[in-house]
Amino acid sequence: MGEASESTGLLSVVGTPIGNLRDASPRVLDTLAAADVVLCEDTRVTGRLMSAFGLHVRLERCDENVMAEKVERVLERLAAGERVAFVSDAGMPGVSDPGQRLVDAALDAGLRVEVVPGPSAVTCALVASGLASEHFFFEGFLPRRPGAQRSRLEELAAVPGTLVVYESPRRAAETLARIAEVMPGRRVALVRELTKLHEEVVRGEAAELAELVAARGELRGECVIVIAAPDAGELEQRRAAAAGPGGTLEEEIAAGLAAGEPKSALAKRLAKSFSLPRAEVYDKVLAAAR
């Protein structure tokens, strides 16, 4: 790994507004104005930002579809002394964004990189949710397919911290309903239209929010879902489940029902642990619950 030389160019990773243009700092605008080229996800989106502030700098598309073929050329520009700014459509590049690959390559090549801070939907939503933020895990977008999404949520349910998930407004209700199935009783906040005029934070249990969103119809604006961390009891229950059954099927059913675990989720978990048909275990759960 080489050391960055002052004689080389500079890659500026620039955070841009996620909604309210007034969140663009003077340093952000100065950096964009001084760049030889601005690399961006969508030239139309970034073009509107540049136009709003009277900036006239060449824009070049550099999204996840073309990043691989652009990296070497960008490194050549930096080595030749050019100032290159990299932005995403909104927020901090490199966070749930292909810009990480470019930064990694520039640092490995011993080229200069700076980060010009700007808004981030992750931290804005986390603070706006009012949920505990001492420990949190940023997931980004969940898988779209229902089965894969549920499997991923089951993995995330054991994380001992608040979860932050990006979601499309078209899929928000379905995702909230699936969160309710996997993490019943968890407090959840749906945050949308961050920094804009109609910014909204709705809180409650996931099942309640799923019903609310479904009743509203399609939402507007990108959404962030913030899920409260599991309490000590839930964590212990999940660890015990992961370790496998500690008693007979009947004992495990009784323990799960006593802990308030939903019957369907209990049957699925124990069917997997005991390698039994789910329908058979579910019948036993229903019988024990009577």
Rank of each mutant, 00 (worst) to 15 (best):
V37R: 10
V37H: 07
V38Q: 06
L39P: 00
L39A: 03
L39F: 06
E41I: 09
E41F: 11
E41N: 07
D42K: 10
D42A: 10
D42T: 09
D42I: 11
T43K: 12
T43H: 08
R44F: 08
V45C: 03
T46R: 07
T46H: 05
T46K: 08
T46I: 10
G47I: 11
R48G: 00
L49E: 02
M50H: 12
S51N: 12
S51A: 14
A52R: 13
F53T: 04
F53Y: 14
F53P: 04
G54M: 07
G54D: 08
H56N: 14
R58V: 10
D63N: 15
E64G: 05
E64C: 09
E64Y: 13
E64W: 13
V66K: 08
M67W: 09
E69Y: 10
E69I: 10
K70F: 04
E72M: 13
E72I: 11
R73Y: 08
V74W: 03
L75T: 03
E76H: 12
E76D: 15
E76I: 10
R77L: 14
L78D: 00
L78I: 11
L78P: 04
L78R: 04
L78G: 00
A79Q: 15
A80Y: 12
E82D: 15
R83F: 09
R83D: 06
V84I: 15
A85K: 07
F86T: 03
V87T: 14
V87H: 06
V87W: 10
S88D: 02
S88K: 04
S88I: 07
D89I: 08
D89N: 13
A90E: 08
M92C: 11
M92F: 07
P93T: 03
P93W: 11
G94Y: 08
G94C: 06
G94H: 06
S96H: 05
D97C: 00
D97G: 00
Q100V: 12
R101P: 00
L102H: 01
L102C: 01
D104A: 15
A106G: 01
L107P: 01
L107M: 14
D108Y: 11
D108R: 15
A109C: 09
G110R: 12
L111A: 03
L111V: 06
R112H: 04
E114T: 14
V115Y: 06
V116Y: 01
V116E: 00
P117K: 09
S120F: 03
A121M: 06
A121R: 00
A121P: 01
V122L: 13
T123P: 01
C124L: 15
A125E: 10
A125C: 11
L126E: 05
V127C: 12
V127I: 13
A128I: 07
A128R: 13
S129N: 03
S129W: 01
G130C: 07
L131D: 06
L131P: 05
L131W: 00
L131Y: 00
A132V: 12
S133R: 09
E134H: 12
E134C: 06
E134K: 13
H135I: 10
H135W: 04
F136N: 02
F137S: 11
E139M: 05
G140L: 04
G140Y: 00
F141K: 03
F141V: 05
